[in-house]
Structures are given as C-alpha cells and as structure tokens.
C-alpha cells in the first residue's frame, strides 16, 4: 500500500510516516503543491493525505486536481483549521475523509484503512485476525465461523483495535474514536473499561484467544504476542 503524505511541517510528516511504516505502508512525501503535483502525475497512490495549509497554496486545489484526473486514490484532508466551511468544501470536492490537527496517529491509521477498504472493491471485505473475522459492511463478527453478537460500540472498538494491531492505544484516543467530542473528561474513561471488558468477555466466550491486554494505566493493546 502506497501513501503520499503532503505536509509542509517536517516533524509532523516524519511522525506520520514512522507510524504508517510500522503498519506496513510505503510512504512518500511532498512539502508543497508543486512537489505534490509532480508526484501525483508520475505515480499511483492508494491513499493521499493532504494538509490544507501549504506554503504555496491551499491543499484543496490538489483534491480538485485529483478528482478531475479521476485518480483512484483515497484522499484524507488534514487541517489545523477546525472550520466547518473547509470541511464541507473538502468533502464536496471529493475528499474521502477529514481530520483536524492535532489528531491521534491511531485514528489516522483507522481512517486510512477505512478509506482503503471502501476504495478496493476487488479485495475481501472481511478483516481477519487469526480466528476472528469481521465485516465492516454488515457489522458482523465471527469467531471460528460463529457469529458473535456485538453491540455497535463494541464492534467499532474491535475494528479500531484491528486497524491498530500491536499498538498501544491510549484511553483518550479510544474515547475520541468512539464518542468524538462528547467525552472530554477523564471520569468517563470508566465507560471504555466497561466496553472493553464486555468485548473481551464475548470474544473469549465464543472461543477466541485473549488478545486484549491492559497497558498499565495508559491504555490497551490488541496483540497475539
């Protein structure tokens, strides 16, 4: 999977590519519109991350160019501007998703996977992890072929974990992924605990191994090692 990161902030770009490389992506980057246009014209990318505020113009121009040339790349807009107009315009011109800085890398990763799933029709819809397989379209979870009755939140949680396998996910990033902005205080982290223990219990009950590990006071990790 090839990802193009168009971001003028060097530190941010290295952080993003470090995380994505550890997830098995091939990352390239461009720091401005000129560089980005050249790369887009020469290579094919599965997903392109575009920062709106670039030194030589607005990143939304690139989205328009991409859509005009009917490139089959997924596009995610990254912006420091939490402005509704940019968001609506970005999605209108054909971006697949929108993330406001500062975002969690685990969240970015989950969004990229979701965009890629929606774009790649030829591939399998199911995501598999050892004996667990889930289908994001039908919201179905199976363990060794048996359907596990998960709630919507538990399913979202499992999908988020499977998108960020073997990564430490902080409670905050999980809360933000599941509830967006509604949760902004630590006393609500108990909710996550409840959801995670329910999910873990259901998976084990249906015969899956225990992949969910607590990481001290920080968060959780979904791993088979």
């Amino acid at each position: 999977m090839k990802v193009l990161i168009i971001e003028d902030e060097h530190e941010l770009q290295t952080a993003i590519s470090a995380y994505l490389k550890s997830e098995g992506y091939v990352c390239e980057h461009a720091a401005n519109i000129k560089e980005a246009t050249e790369k887009i014209n020469i290579y094919e990318y599965d997903c392109i991350l575009i920062d709106i505020g670039l030194p030589d113009g607005n990143g939304l121009q690139l989205v328009e160019i991409l859509k005009k040339e009917l490139k089959n790349s997924g596009v995610i807009i990254l912006t420091a501007k939490n402005s509704l107009e940019d968001k609506i315009f970005g999605l209108d011109v054909g971006a697949d998703d929108y993330l406001t800085k500062p975002f969690n890398l685990s969240e970015l990763n989950a969004r990229i996977r979701s965009v890629l799933r929606r774009r790649k029709f030829e591939g399998k819809k199911e995501i598999e992890f050892n004996e667990i397989s889930i289908n994001p379209d039908t919201l179905q979870t199976c363990v060794q072929g048996k359907t596990v009755p998960l709630t919507k939140k538990e399913f979202d949680l499992l999908l988020f974990f499977l998108s960020n396998k073997k990564k430490v996910l902080t409670k905050e990033s999980i809360a933000e992924h599941l509830w967006g902005d509604y949760i902004d205080s630590a006393d609500n982290f108990d909710f996550i605990y409840v959801h995670i223990s329910n999910l873990r219990k259901k998976l084990i009950d249906y015969g899956a191994r225990d992949y969910l590990h607590t990481v001290y006071g920080v968060g959780y990790k979904f791993t088979d090692t």
């Binding site: 530190e11 941010l12 952080a15 420091a80 406001t100 800085k101 500062p102 975002f103």
Partner: peptide, 13 residues
Amino acid sequence: QTPLAIVKNKLEI
C-alpha cells in the same frame, strides 16, 4: 495546533 500535533504524535510513537 501544528506543534501540538507534533508533540502528540511523537508521544504516540
């Protein structure tokens, strides 16, 4: 937001 994003992401890594 940009330096904050860097701090957050580096900590995450």
